[in-house]
C-alpha cells in the first residue's frame, strides 16, 4: 500500500527492508547507531540527522558506529564489499570526502576494471549535500560532479521520497560502488511511497512535467525549484518540460536529447558551482548531439563560483531559485525581463 512518508523515512525504510532481506547488508558510519558501548542505545541517535534511527535496535551489531576517521571507515567499507558484504557507509557530509577520496576513486572505483572484471565492490556511500541548511562553507557543498567525473562510480541523487526508497534499494543490490547523495533540505519532504520494497533502475531520468516550449534538465532539490518555475511560466503560456536526471552516472542521454529535439530550447539547473558541473556536462551533451535542434542558446542556472556563505541573506542569494529559472526560460524564449 502506498502512503505518505518523508524522504528521510523512505531512506530509513529502504535500509530496514534490505537489511531484513539480505543478511550481508551492514551499516557503518559516525553515530549511525548512537554511541556504541554507552547507555544510550535504546534511544540511539541514528546519524547526525537521525536517518538511521531505530535500525540499531532492529539489527544490532550490523549497524556499526565508527571513529571520526572517514579514511578508515570508508576504506573498511570498501574492503568489506570486496570480501562479500554489502556495506552502506554514511559519509556524514559530502564536504568531508576529501579525507577519504583515495579509498573511493583510486580503490573502489578501480577494482572491477583493474582485476579484469573479476572483482565486485557492492558498497553504497550515503552522504548529505546542498545549501539551505545554514551550515556554512564546509557543510553545504554540492560535490557530486567530482564523483560523476570518475568512471567506475555510480552517482545517485533522489529528489522525492518515492525515488529515494527505490534508488537506495537499487543501490544496495547493485554490484558496483554507488555514491548516494541526499539533499538535507529534502529530508522532511513528504510523498507517496509504497510499503513494499521496489527498485528504480539507474540511468532512467524522470519526466516530472511535460511541455513543448522549453526543456529544463535538473536534479536533486532543484527539481522542486524548476517545477515551481514551470508552474508560474505555464500561467504565462510557456510550457516547460522538466526532467529530473535522478542519476548523474549513468546519465539518461536519450530522455534529454529526445526532449530537446521536441522543444528546441534548453535550460539546465544545477545547485553546484558553475564550472565543470552537471549543467556544463548536460549543455555539452546537447551542443554535441542535438545542436541542430536548438532554436536558442543554452542557458545554465547554477550556484556562483564562491563558497557557500554563512550569512542567511547571502546563502539565500547563492541558491538557484524559481525566479532565476523563470528568467532563464524567458530569455531562451526571446522574452525580456
Amino acid at each position: 500500500m502506498a502512503r505518505k512518508i518523508t524522504y528521510q523515512q523512505a531512506i530509513n525504510e529502504a535500509l530496514s527492508q534490505e537489511m531484513s532481506r539480505d543478511p550481508t547488508v551492514i551499516i557503518m558510519g559516525e553515530d549511525v547507531a548512537g554511541g556504541a558501548g554507552t547507555d544510550g542505545e535504546q534511544e540511539a541517535w541514528g546519524g547526525v540527522l537521525g536517518v538511521t534511527k531505530g535500525l540499531y535496535k532492529k539489527f544490532g551489531d550490523r549497524v556499526m558506529d565508527t571513529p571520526i576517521t572517514e579514511s578508515a571507515f570508508i576504506g573498511a567499507a570498501v574492503g568489506a564489499a570486496t570480501a562479500g558484504l554489502r556495506p552502506v557507509a554514511e559519509l556524514m557530509f559530502i564536504d568531508f570526502m576529501g579525507v577519504c577520496l583515495d579509498q573511493i576513486f583510486n580503490q573502489a572505483a578501480k577494482f572491477r576494471y583493474m582485476f579484469g572484471g573479476k572483482a565486485e565492490t557492492p558498497v553504497v556511500i550515503r552522504t548529505m549535500y546542498g545549501a539551505g541548511f545554514r551550515a556554512a562553507a564546509q557543510h553545504s557543498q554540492c560535490l557530486y560532479p567530482v564523483f560523476t567525473h570518475i568512471p567506475g562510480l555510480k552517482v545517485v541523487m533522489p529528489a522525492t521520497p518515492y525515488d529515494a526508497k527505490g534508488l537506495l534499494i537499487q543501490a544496495i543490490r547493485d554490484n558496483d560502488p554507488v555514491i548516494f547523495c541526499e539533499h538535507k533540505v529534502l529530508y522532511t519532504l513528504e510523498g507517496d511511497v509504497p510499503e513494499e520494497p521496489y527498485t528504480i533502475p539507474f540511468g532512467e531520468a524522470s519526466v516530472v512535467r511535460e511541455g513543448k516550449d522549453v526543456t529544463i534538465v535538473t536534479l536533486g532539490r532543484m527539481v522542486h525549484m524548476a517545477t515551481d518555475a514551470a508552474d508560474n511560466l505555464a500561467k504565462q503560456g510557456i510550457k516547460c518540460e522538466v526532467i529530473d536526471l535522478r542519476t548523474t552516472s549513468p546519465i539518461d542521454e536519450d530522455t534529454i536529447l529526445e526532449s530537446v529535439e521536441n522543444t528546441g530550447r534548453l535550460v539546465v539547473v544545477d545547485e553546484a558551482h558553475p564550472r565543470c558541473n552537471i549543467a556544463t556536462d548536460v549543455s555539452a551533451l546537447v551542443a554535441d548531439k542535438a545542436f541542430d535542434s536548438l532554436k536558442a542558446p543554452i542557458k545554465m542556472v547554477t550556484g556562483p563560483h564562491v563558497p557557500v556563505p554563512f550569512s542567511d541573506v547571502l546563502e539565500d542569494l547563492y541558491i538557484p531559485n524559481a525566479a532565476k529559472i523563470e528568467a532563464a526560460v524567458r530569455s531562451v524564449m526571446g522574452k525580456k525581463g
Binding site: 518515492y162 527505490g166 509504497p194 513494499e196 520494497p197 521496489y198 527498485t199 524522470s206
Partner: peptide
C-alpha cells in the same frame, strides 16, 4: 507508463 513501470518494479 510510469504507473505500470512502478508496479512492475515492486518486489515479487
Amino acid at each position: 507508463i510510469n504507473d505500470i513501470l512502478a508496479y512492475k518494479r515492486l518486489d515479487g
